[in-house]
Write a protein that binds this DNA or RNA. Structure first.
Length: 841
DNA sequence: ACTAGCCACTTTTTT
DNA sequence: AGTGGCTAGT
């Protein structure tokens, strides 16, 4: 009798649980309910893997770990009847029923979800708290680095580091490394500092200690790397600092060497989920492995085709060998794509098919075929930018929003031309990546002052600002202090605090004393003021403000940046409330990246690298620079493995697009001050020609027409010459340019109205006529001199449509035109560059 | 100790 | 092309 009730309840429970996740497809459901043991989810791009992760966690919390576990004891007929009713007619279970349903409960704080970026972690948290309320907040969702920081903050002392350790960023690392080079007398011609840093980073990714490296280093170079590594590590330890790689490395050491620590965290994190598993390193794998413990409740989600961080130690083997690392692992493939049109998805499939090293899967979609992919062959990077602007303009006029558009490129240096064109055309945009806000000199200086308050051992940060602004503390003095500190195995600040004990510092004592007074004032301010006021005081106490105010215009922008820093401190303090601390803020800053602050609410076009775009999606995507030597990059040309990584990057780029995809290449491209003529990328050829439409720039069409005309004349001439027995001479190339009435493409260094014209039309005679009209139209005759527009003029802008000129201000041969657009509001544009024309009536 | 001018170098991607 | 780091000169 009881047995039957249990069985009935069990059946109903499953039905009910499945109905709770009713919006998922059967494979996704399977992934949600596979709660026990190791699980590998191979999730293709756009397959809804975040949804699966969120629902999987929600299921663990709400229904516990026991989808297929036996039903709990004590089920009554009434329970069964009530559940039956809920399954059939809806409604919510009461408390008793809810408990019975979750009879193997999992508490949120036992769940650790590790993501790649802070942004992804934040998103996960948001979605969880939307679904689960308070319980969602209690799930531990963080990045590898921040999870490790949290562990190290508790346990660092076991490894001989202070709990208040500092985190060194790349710049700090480089400084530390330079000091090591000096100390060991290493010539950086033989081993550039950056390659040493890279090599050491890779060693740490593989959990190779300085000792191991010294023992195994075979050739001269790796022997030197090992020696540098050892000295560098000593230096960091003395400064009480970890670099990024150390955060993972030392956490793994901790878990390996201290069984009690290991057991504590294994007990703490009983369910582990890892996102973007294809981008994990050996060290990160070991971290996951150690945390998972004997229970092995590890769920990793990844896509081997989207592994794009091999260069910094990610190893695709982690995902390829998951089933060997965790025997008995379940494998679930999510292959249905919900994001892109069939054309876009198929193009991505075409490209990735050319890779050898992959698990192999083919994404499919029920979405419609969608528009063809467009390949635009531009003259130059400027023409390329202009083309993008005109397409965006068309979309915006048709009702799309700017923020639905993204421009993706291989390297940050490619953003320049697009940025310039957009800025001049008045198209609002935002660049993600490149130089981070927190990497600016003035910000780093301010943070260095704050760091030495938080961690007085931090000699490196101290050196950075001890004479900034200038305090007459020269290199010789700094070195003397450093030597004395080394002599007593202490920090430089200890020496500075006890100047009277060191007669050899007598000459510099007033300067050093002055610095020490600054330091004590900073400490006092930190102790007595709220965090943001303290930050604002830093620039006062240190004289930094005075220095910048004396520096004129540039100092002004730097001051503004510091102002931004103060406000971000305030934001942090407001968010964290009583938990906010100086160390906490510095830590957050150290681990933050630009993509984390990317805010999709602003209605602007987004520009970023394809790496930064991973995990994002946009209706309209432009991938620029599809040229051999750029994408795939020059570096990858000779290595098959590197090429495959480039191809995966291309796959990532393509699969960001939901509705339309625009690929472009340029005949001539100026990059790093040199003009290059690159062949179109092999990736273009890998796409089935039926999926893609090619379009040439207007001037290329003209050029070809000119060339054909020339050849015709030449032929006619040859015919005549032949009759007369004379041979022809001359190059068609120059003549063709001359016939087209333009300079060579390389010298056309400005965006032109002509280039901005002719969007999205099939090429051929019609397009060439259109283009030449545009060239003689709005762009003509307004280079400088009298104002091309007056207030009151009615104008039309390629992107913003019609509007009225409010104000015209001359600036250096050009004019700023302020326009009130009918639909887009008030914008400022540059007369010579904006795709703008006057409407004469 | 500071400044100016030079040079070299950058540029693959980032926590 | 632009920047930043370094040297040499003051």
């Amino acid at each position: 009798m009881n047995e039957t009730l249990s069985a009935q309840f069990e059946r109903l429970r499953k039905t009910y649980m499945e109905s709770c996740f009713g919006r998922l497809n059967p494979v996704q459901l399977q992934a949600v309910f596979a709660t026990r043991g190791p699980l590998l989810i191979l999730a293709g791009a756009g397959s809804g893997k975040t949804t699966v992760l969120v629902n999987r966690i929600a299921n663990l919390i709400r229904f516990g770990d026991g989808y297929s576990a036996p039903a709990p004891a004590g089920i009554t007929g009434e329970d069964v009847a009530r559940l039956q009713q809920i399954v059939e007619t809806g409604g919510r279970p009461d408390e008793r029923l809810e408990k019975l349903l979750a009879h193997w409960p999992v508490y949120p704080y036992h769940i650790l979800a590790i993501t790649f970026t802070n942004k992804a972690a934040g998103e996960l948290k948001n979605r969880l708290s939307d679904m689960l309320g308070q319980a969602g907040q209690e799930v531990n969702a963080s990045t590898f680095h921040s999870a490790c920081v949290r562990i190290l903050r508790r346990e660092a002392e076991r490894l001989g580091f202070p709990r208040s350790f500092t985190i060194y960023d790349t710049d700090d690392q480089q400084r530390a490394m330079k000091e090591v080079y000096k100390q060991l007398n290493v010539d950086d011609k033989f081993l550039p500092v950056k390659s040493a840093m890279g090599a050491i980073g890779r060693l740490k990714d593989q959990m190779i200690s300085p000792k191991d490296a010294l023992a195994t280093g075979k050739d001269v170079r790796s022997g030197l790397v090992a020696r540098v590594y050892e000295a560098y590590q000593k230096r960091l330890q003395k400064a009480g600092a970890f670099d990024f790689d150390d955060l993972i490395y030392f956490t793994v050491c901790l878990l390996q060497d201290f069984p009690d620590v290991r057991e504590y965290y294994q007990d703490r994190y009983r369910y582990i989920l890892v996102d973007e598993y294809q981008d994990t390193s050996v060290a990160q794998f070991q971290l996951v492995y150690l945390l998972a413990g004997p229970e092995r409740n590890v769920c990793v989600v990844g896509d081997d085709d989207q592994s794009i961080y091999r260069f910094r130690g990610a190893t695709i083997e982690n995902i390829l060998n998951f089933e060997q690392h965790f025997p008995g692992a379940q494998l679930i493939r999510l292959e249905q794509n919900y994001r892109s049109t069939a054309n876009i998805l198929n193009a991505a499939n075409c490209v990735i098919r050319h890779n050898q090293a992959r698990k192999g899967k083919t994404l499919w979609t029920q979405n419609g075929e969608g528009a063809q992919i467009l390949h635009y062959e531009a003259d130059s990077e400027l023409d390329e930018a202009a083309h993008i602007a005109s397409v965006i303009g068309r979309h915006v006029r048709e009702g799309a929003r700017l923020r639905d558009h993204a421009v993706l490129y291989r390297m940050n240096a490619q953003s320049g031309p697009v940025e310039n064109y957009f800025a001049r055309a008045g198209i609002p945009y935002k660049i993600v990546g490149g130089q981070r806000f927190y990497d600016r000199k003035e910000i780093k200086d301010m943070l260095a002052y704050m760091s030495i308050v938080a961690n007085p051992q931090d000699d490196l940060r101290l050196r950075r600002i001890i004479n900034e602004p200038a305090r007459k503390i020269g290199a010789a003095t700094v070195q003397a202090v450093a030597d004395l500190a080394a002599g007593r195995a202490g920090a430089m600040l200890d020496v500075i605090a006890h100047l009277e004990e060191y007669p050899q510092l007598h000459r510099a004592s007033s300067a050093l004393g002055g610095f020490y007074r600054v330091y004590t004032q900073l400490r006092a301010a930190a102790d007595s003021l709220p965090l943001d006021e303290f930050t604002a005081q830093v620039m006062e106490i240190t004289g930094y403000r005075a220095m910048l105010e004396a520096a004129g215009e540039e100092g002004q922008t730097r001051l503004e940046n510091i102002g931004q820093l103060v406000s971000s401190v305030k934001t942090y303090a407001d968010q964290r409330g009583p938990e906010a601390s100086l160390a906490g803020f510095l830590e957050e800053v150290a681990l933050i990246s630009d993509i984390d602050s990317y805010n999709e609410d602003a209605d602007v076009v987004v520009l970023m690298t394809m790496h930064a775009a991973k995990g994002l999606e946009f209706d309209y995507v432009f991938i620029v620079g599809l040229e051999e030597g750029i994408f795939p990059s020059e570096m990858s040309r000779y290595s098959e493995e590197d090429l495959e990584e480039e191809r995966r990057l291309c796959y990532v780029g393509i699969t960001r697009a939901k509705k339309e995809l625009y690929l472009s290449s340029a005949h001539a491209r100026m990059l790093f001050g040199q003009t290059k003529h690159n062949k179109p990328s092999r990736f273009l050829e890998e796409i089935d020609p039926r999926l893609i439409r090619h379009e040439e720039s207007a001037s290329a069409v003209r050029m070809r027409a000119a060339r054909e005309a020339y050849l015709q004349r030449q032929n006619a001439y040859l015919d005549r010459s032949y009759n007369r027995g004379v041979s022809a001479s001359g190059s068609w190339n120059g003549a063709a340019y001359a016939a087209a009435g333009r300079s060579t493409p390389a010298s056309s260094a400005r965006p032109r109205a002509a280039a901005a014209g002719a969007p999205g039309r099939s090429f051929g005679p019609a397009s060439s006529i259109r283009a030449s009209q545009a060239a003689g139209g709005p762009g003509a005759g307004r280079s400088s001199g009298p104002a091309p527009y007056q207030s009151g003029d009615h104008v039309e802008h390629k992107v913003f449509g019609r509007g009225t000129v409010l104000k015209v201000t001359p600036v250096g041969g050009d004019h700023i035109v302020e326009i009130r657009f009918d639909t887009a509001g008030v914008k400022k544009t540059m007369a010579n560059y904006a795709p703008l024309r006057r409407l004469d009536e």
